[in-house]
Design a protein around this nucleic acid. Structure first.
Lengths: 224, 224
DNA sequence: AGCCTCTGTAACCATTTTGTTACATAGCCT
DNA sequence: AGGCTATGTAACAAAATGGTTACAGAGGCT
């Protein structure tokens, strides 16, 4: 299980310790000694977990998270805190934090908590369904239903349809699709997208009567 | 996501480090140790991002960017700075910079910031709607609506109409259109614009009653 | 290993889009 | 009005683009 974890902790040695241990576990981490610049990162990148010191100089860590929640950032949070009074813990949870760990803590415990939170949120993310017209994509079981008929899709086809539905009414160009469906560093030809799209089209609309996927000549594809 | 990135940093080893890492990420980079020659490049080439040291000997980095903005260069900027006093950061943003990163920084963070800025500026370009009289251009779905009727446009026609609407009340000459719609380095005849404009006119106003696009004899075309 | 599925690539073809050219028309000047 | 130039129009050719198919390699499963 790889994940991108942001750590905010003003004591540099603790920050480094945490980063060292998490990277050893195979996580991608990025550390900050203040909340500065963190908000933007959370807004713009898919961060899997935020580890946040409650006792930062200046802004309260939980206050910061509350602001994030207000603008719609749902990144799960594990709070670090030297405090361990009951009231503080409750306050932390109240504001939408997902877990709470008091200093001093050992690394084993932190890693366990992290894995637990990630597992929980991963489930949340992949539960539920995406619907477009008479297409239903079950993200949990990764099944596709069209007019309640189950249609088998390969992983690639599923991911492709998923991002198309997730961006309906927006024309996605081949570069975007290559990056998001195939993966950021993959080097493929854009004709690859072409073929993949048409294999998907064939599966979801064999007699070409529905026109789910529209090709926008010179640009890309869209679900509209 | 490939992009053309210009880096201005007087310390050569840092410059090389940045270039090395960005090229590893698949970006095209060009480095300068002073602002000399950078202005010209920004004016003449479509640069996606400028990474600018604030602490250059001689001209202040942000001063340079301010001058660029004055002559209409909108390239997004990420500032590098050893300073981290609050006032400096605010000043950097005030002058139109898009992001700010303080030394020492790790490459991972820089790359993340870069991707975030690129995504943001790309999104700005491809999101939302442009409206002129009863014409609505949806940049996401690349659809044209006139009086709520959907009219199909080819890529070229769409881009052409987009830049016309984006510069309404300004007469655009053929050279400008060739450069911005067809692309900077392409060599076409200016009659090409002519024909393209008229094909567009035909589509958006078949019975020639609306006069959306006005031809300015001897100069070019405008939407007024 | 053998078989199967999935997927990237290349080749081919049909279609659309676009550049160019030639000619007609319209605007502007004397 | 006549003549000149710029622009519109239509037809054609070239180029770009995407669909389709076939094939081969990769990976998984028995």
């Amino acid at each position: 299980m790889s994940a991108f974890i942001v750590i905010v902790e003003d004591e540099e040695d603790i920050l480094e310790l945490i980063e060292y241990n998490l990277e050893k576990e195979g996580f991608d981490t990025i550390g900050f000694t203040s909340t500065k610049n963190v908000a933007q990162l959370l807004e713009e990148e898919p961060v899997d977990l935020l580890i946040m010191d409650r006792n930062l100089p200046g802004v309260e860590g939980s206050e910061f998270v509350a602001q994030m929640r207000d603008i719609g950032v749902e990144t799960p949070v594990i709070y670090l805190s030297a405090k361990n009074k009951e009231s503080d813990i409750e306050e932390g949870f109240e504001r939408g934090g997902d877990d709470y760990i008091t200093k001093p803590f050992n690394m084993k415990e932190l890693v366990l908590r992290i894995k637990a939170v990630l597992k929980r949120t991963k489930k949340d993310k992949t539960e539920g369904k995406v619907i477009y017209r008479d297409i239903t994509l079950d993200l949990g079981s990764r099944e596709l239903f069209i007019e309640n008929r189950n249609i088998e899709l390969t992983k690639l086809e599923f991911d492709l349809l998923h991002t198309l539905i997730g961006n309906q009414n927006i024309v996605l160009d081949r570069d975007y699709l290559l990056e998001h469906v195939w993966g950021g560093d993959a080097i493929y030809q854009d004709r690859t997208v072409n073929v993949a799209i048409n294999r998907l089209k064939e599966k979801i609309d064999p007699d070409k009567s529905k026109e789910y996927i529209k090709t926008v000549r010179g640009v890309g594809y869209t679900l509209c």
